[in-house]
Amino acid sequence: HSHMSHTQVIELERKFSHQKYLSAPERAHLAKNLKLTETQVKIWFQNRRYKTKRKQLSSEL
């Protein structure tokens, strides 16, 4: 499990705020920019979407 830097997370968050789903080319581009693997980016987005979904569910209770 590799640790992401604060800067990388900020960039991922910024991208996520604009779009929740990335196409393969977008993911490849973002990964390259942030010096991450595409898998890391993919998993981060999956986890981030899951967290957002959970938060929405709990706020509706």
Rank of each mutant, 00 (worst) to 15 (best):
E26S: 03
R14V: 03
F16W: 05
H18A: 11
Q19M: 07
E60A: 08
E13Y: 05
R48N: 04
E26V: 03
T39F: 08
F45E: 02
S2P: 09
K32G: 07
Q19N: 09
K53F: 11
K51L: 09
N47C: 15
A28M: 08
S58R: 11
A28K: 10
L34H: 01
P25H: 13
L34A: 03
K35F: 09
H18D: 12
K53R: 11
L22M: 04
L57F: 10
T39D: 07
Q40M: 06
S23H: 01
A28Q: 10
R48G: 04
Q40V: 06
L36C: 07
R27E: 04
P25K: 13
W44C: 02
E26C: 05
R48L: 04
P25W: 10
T37C: 07
R27Y: 09
E26A: 06
Q8W: 08
E13C: 15
F16S: 03
L57N: 14
L61D: 14
K51G: 08
Q8T: 05
S2W: 12
Q19E: 04
T37W: 04
K15S: 07
L22S: 01
S2C: 15
M4R: 01
N47I: 14
L61A: 12
N47L: 10
S2Q: 07
A31P: 01
T39Y: 12
W44H: 01
K35R: 05
P25L: 11
L57Y: 06
A28S: 09
K20P: 08
Q19V: 05
H6R: 11
N33V: 13
Y21V: 03
K35G: 15
K53A: 10
W44S: 00
R54E: 13
F16Y: 14
S58G: 13
V41S: 01
Q46M: 08
P25G: 15
K53M: 12
R14S: 12
S5P: 04
Q19W: 07
K53Y: 10
V9Q: 09
L61S: 13
L30D: 04
N47E: 15
R54K: 14
L30K: 00
Y50D: 12
R49L: 04
L12E: 01
R48Y: 03
T37E: 05
R54C: 15
H3G: 07
E60V: 07
T7D: 12
S17M: 11
R27T: 07
W44L: 02
S17K: 11
T52W: 15
K55S: 13
I43T: 06
S2L: 13
E26Y: 03
N47K: 14
S5Q: 03
Q46I: 15
S58E: 13
K15W: 10
H6Q: 08
L22D: 00
T7P: 04
E11L: 06
S2K: 13
E13V: 07
K42S: 07
K51M: 09
W44I: 03
E38T: 14
F45V: 01
L12D: 01
F16H: 03
Q46R: 09
K20G: 09
E11N: 03
E13W: 04
R27F: 07
L22R: 00
K32C: 10
H18F: 08
T7E: 09
S23K: 06
Q40R: 04
L34I: 04
N47R: 15
S59W: 08
K53H: 15
K15Q: 08
L57H: 10
S23P: 02
R54L: 14
L34Y: 00
K15N: 07
K55N: 15
E13F: 05
S17L: 08
H3S: 08
F45C: 05
V41G: 00
K32A: 11
A24S: 07
R54F: 07
L36N: 01
K42W: 10
E38V: 09
H3I: 08
E60S: 08
A24T: 05
V9Y: 08
H1N: 06
V41L: 04
I10W: 09
E60Q: 15
F45Y: 03
E60F: 09
E38G: 02
R48E: 11
L22K: 00
L57Q: 13
A31D: 01
N47Q: 13
S5T: 09
S2Y: 13
A28T: 07
H29A: 10
Q56N: 10
N33F: 12
T7C: 14
S2E: 08
A24Y: 13
I43H: 06
R48P: 01
S23G: 04
Y50H: 14
E11R: 04
V9K: 10
R48C: 09
L34N: 00
S2A: 13
S2V: 12
H6L: 14
S58Y: 11
K35C: 14
Y21I: 04
W44G: 00
Q40D: 05
P25N: 10
H29E: 14
H29R: 12
S5R: 12
W44N: 00
K20H: 09
E13Q: 07
M4C: 14
Y21F: 07
T39K: 06
L61Q: 08
E60D: 11
T37G: 03
E38I: 07
T39P: 06
W44R: 01
K53D: 12
A24H: 08
T39M: 11
Q8Y: 04
E11W: 07
K32I: 11
R48S: 04
A24K: 12
K32D: 05
F45I: 01
E11H: 06
R27N: 04
V9G: 01
K15V: 14
S59N: 13
Q56D: 13
E38Q: 07
S58L: 15
H18L: 12
I43D: 06
Q40E: 07
Q8R: 02
R14Y: 05
F16E: 00
L12P: 02
S23Y: 06
E26T: 02
E38S: 04
N33C: 15
F16D: 00
R54W: 08
K53P: 10
A28F: 08
H6K: 13
H3F: 07
H18S: 11
E38N: 04
I43R: 09
K32P: 02
K42E: 08
Q56E: 13
S17P: 01
A31F: 03
S23N: 09
S59V: 10
L34R: 00
Q56F: 11
E60W: 12
V41A: 01
K42T: 06
Q19G: 05
V41T: 00
K42D: 05
A31V: 01
S17I: 06
K32W: 08
R48V: 05
E60H: 07
A24Q: 10
V41N: 00
Q56A: 07
L36P: 00
A31E: 04
P25Y: 07
K32L: 14
P25R: 12
Y21N: 01
A28L: 09
R14A: 06
